[in-house]
Simulated scan of single mutants.
Amino acid sequence: MLLQPPPKLVGEKRLSFRNLDWHAFKQIQSLLTERTRARFTYDNGVLEITMPLEGHERSARLIELFIRVLVVEIGMKIKTMGSTTLDREDLLKSAEPDNGYYIQNYSLVSDREINLNVDPAPDLVVEVDITHTDLNKNLLYASLGVPEFWRFNGRVWQILQLVNGTYVECDRSPTFPIVEKNDLYQFLEVALLDEVAAEVNFRQWVREQI
């Protein structure tokens, strides 16, 4: 089952710049962060500035709720990074995902701020890209070493697992193997009408699986 978005759904406004060095990128990011709610993704000279709209933000927050329910009901630990900037100047890459989480590596980073020069990347990163992006985000997050990457475009959920430096699409989440893609689709379908009912029903379902 695939979710059918409203006609002409636009989830983000995007603006791209090319041939920017790292210093120029950081200057633009610093200037606009103070004045806007924009997100910044930089990949080897290309800067994409994204302004999330309602469709984007609602999907991102509902997927975050989906993950939170799983973590709590299964009894896992989690450090939520939200859209914390993931900078790797040595790779000329920087990203501000919709959601980032430490789960498997929670104990390594639970009590301090993250420094990606010494710490592992988040175990799970989520990106909602409803409007087309010119950046190859699979390659970007693979380069950052993110083990599991979820992408949602308003209809299709991709679960990507890092294998030998490249993402391989999976039917189930390596972090949450009890759920299939269809479970997220069903959750979102209910949540778009009644978020509380979706959470209550999903919690009960997870408890029954474990």
Rank of each mutant, 00 (worst) to 15 (best):
Y141R: 02
D43G: 12
Y185V: 10
E34D: 11
Y167P: 12
R58Q: 07
N136H: 09
F187T: 04
L162P: 08
Q158D: 14
L20R: 04
L162W: 05
V72L: 11
G100H: 12
I78S: 08
K8D: 11
S110L: 12
D183V: 01
E12I: 04
L193R: 15
V190I: 15
Q158G: 14
L91K: 09
G154H: 07
Q209E: 03
F187P: 13
Q104W: 13
D43H: 14
I28A: 12
R112F: 11
L92S: 15
D111M: 07
V118K: 13
D194M: 08
R37T: 15
S173E: 01
E54D: 11
E54Q: 10
L160Y: 07
Y101N: 03
H132S: 13
V146D: 04
L2V: 12
F202S: 07
S107Y: 08
T84N: 08
E12C: 09
Y102N: 02
Y167S: 08
E89Q: 06
F152P: 05
I28P: 09
Q4G: 04
E199M: 14
T131V: 07
N44A: 13
L31M: 07
S16M: 12
V126D: 09
W22P: 04
V156Y: 15
L140N: 00
G55L: 10
E12A: 09
D171K: 05
L65G: 00
L144S: 10
V179Q: 06
M1T: 04
F187R: 06
L9C: 09
E199F: 09
L20T: 06
R35L: 12
V46W: 10
A24S: 13
R112A: 14
V71Y: 01
L20D: 04
T85F: 08
A197E: 08
V168N: 11
T133K: 13
G82N: 05
L188H: 03
G165N: 11
A197M: 15
A198K: 03
V10K: 13
F149E: 00
Q209Y: 04
R68F: 11
K93G: 14
R207K: 14
E127V: 08
V118P: 12
A121V: 07
Q209F: 06
G75I: 00
D123H: 00
Y141F: 05
E34P: 07
L192E: 14
Y101V: 01
L162E: 02
E73P: 02
R39E: 08
L162H: 03
I159W: 00
E113Q: 11
S59E: 02
P52A: 05
D123T: 00
L70A: 05
R39D: 07
T36A: 05
D123W: 02
G45Q: 03
L3A: 06
E127N: 11
S30G: 11
T36Y: 04
H23I: 13
Y167H: 09
M1A: 11
V168I: 07
V71K: 02
H56K: 06
S83H: 06
P52W: 04
K77Q: 10
